[in-house]
């Protein structure tokens, strides 16, 4: 995949722009200071607090401390719904069997704790020929295609 920019062994990006070169701050510090352009959303954070400030954000990291905690999927999607167009990066316990759903929720970068096997990754993204429902990606749901 040649659109894949890497800054470390594990980072996978599906974006053309340059990656932000400074560390993400917590949501609380971000809301307190204006200089940061990268923020990290933890599962318990309310990502909606970022919405008034989306213009100055270039990177939102959504942390998955454990892959079974699915709050980050909603955080990602509601940021995209609010018009955020910067990088949305899933970090932490991000596994190959979750990345396809994460993509649909608006993530366009992954920084997993453990590296993902390239073949498995490609298989994961090419797995689903269609989608049943609308999400944060541009895929057309089956029910729309049926009545096109």
């Amino acid at each position: 995949m040649d659109d894949l920019a890497t800054e470390n062994d594990r980072l996978i990006r599906y974006r053309e722009d340059e990656a932000v070169d400074h560390a993400a701050v917590t949501v609380d510090s971000f809301l307190d200071q204006s200089s940061a352009s990268a923020v990290r959303v933890e599962p318990g954070d309310d990502a909606r607090e970022l919405i008034p400030h989306l213009g100055r954000l270039a990177l939102v990291e959504v942390n998955f401390p454990a892959f079974g905690d699915g709050r980050g999927y909603s955080s990602a999607r509601l940021l995209r719904e609010a018009g955020y167009e910067g990088e949305l990066r899933a970090v932490g316990d991000v596994l190959v069997d979750q990345v396809a759903y994460m993509r649909r929720c608006g993530f366009d970068a992954f920084d997993p704790d453990a590296p993902l096997d390239a073949d498995d990754l490609e298989a994961a993204f090419s797995r689903w020929p269609e989608v049943y429902q609308a999400a944060a990606d541009s895929r057309t749901p089956i029910w729309t295609k049926r009545h096109a």
């Binding site: 905690d69 699915g70 999927y73 759903y101 649909r104 689903w128 989608v131 049943y132 429902q133």
Partner: peptide
Amino acid sequence: RQWSSFHPEFSYL
């Protein structure tokens, strides 16, 4: 059923 099948946001409730 269709809506909830493979729902990307609601598979780790």
